[in-house]
Amino acid sequence: MIMKLNPDLFLFRRTRELERKIDRFYDNLSESAIVFRLAVRAYLKQGWTEEFQERLERVSQLESANDNLRREIESELYEHTLIPDSRGDVLGLIENSDQVISEFESTLWAFANERPEIPDAFRSGFRKLTNMVVKAADELGLGARAFFRSPQDVPAYNHKVMLYEKEADVISTTLKRAIFASEDLALCGKLHLKEFVEYIDSIADTAEDVADRLAIYAIKRLV
């Protein structure tokens, strides 16, 4: 009789469960990036709508789910003294990645609360900036997943994070210049829009900061 061994039945059940939690954490990060993009698009099209609100609520759910996952991962790593060599790095990576999803949420809340008026002329710039920021966050998620399974692949993902972050900086600078060059907006309107450009752009900055740390963590695993 051929018996199929189920790895979950054996020693590694706890390990597999924890791996699933880490995977779910990064699934939530990439989902929140997609939903964030859809929410900003919806806002740019029609301003605050039911659809935007639903997307915002979804990002909020994902953010709190990730907070819980982060706490569970942290306590399990410490309680069972797992990965003693890399525990600090893994916790640092997860805490910093959590920062990215928090910024997605807080930016959408700012849209919901402040409801900025975005003139047609700047909508394409906002769309491009959002796309670039989301790409940076996506690549960060892929890089973080690679850290756990193939740290040698991390630099390739990090390189893309850097590129998208730089591109986001270029777009945000161009957008801010265009905003302040506009003759149709009052200064307070310009300042308000500038703030939103910075909200969105800062997500790519955070992704880059996390990628910088990730590069060190990956090197430590490879040495």
Binding site: I83, F148, R221
Partner: peptide, 13 residues
């Protein structure tokens, strides 16, 4: 290890 691409936690276990 590089070929199997095992998860860090699996490697630990």
């Amino acid at each position: 290890g590089e070929r199997l691409r095992l998860h860090l936690l699996t490697v630990d276990a």
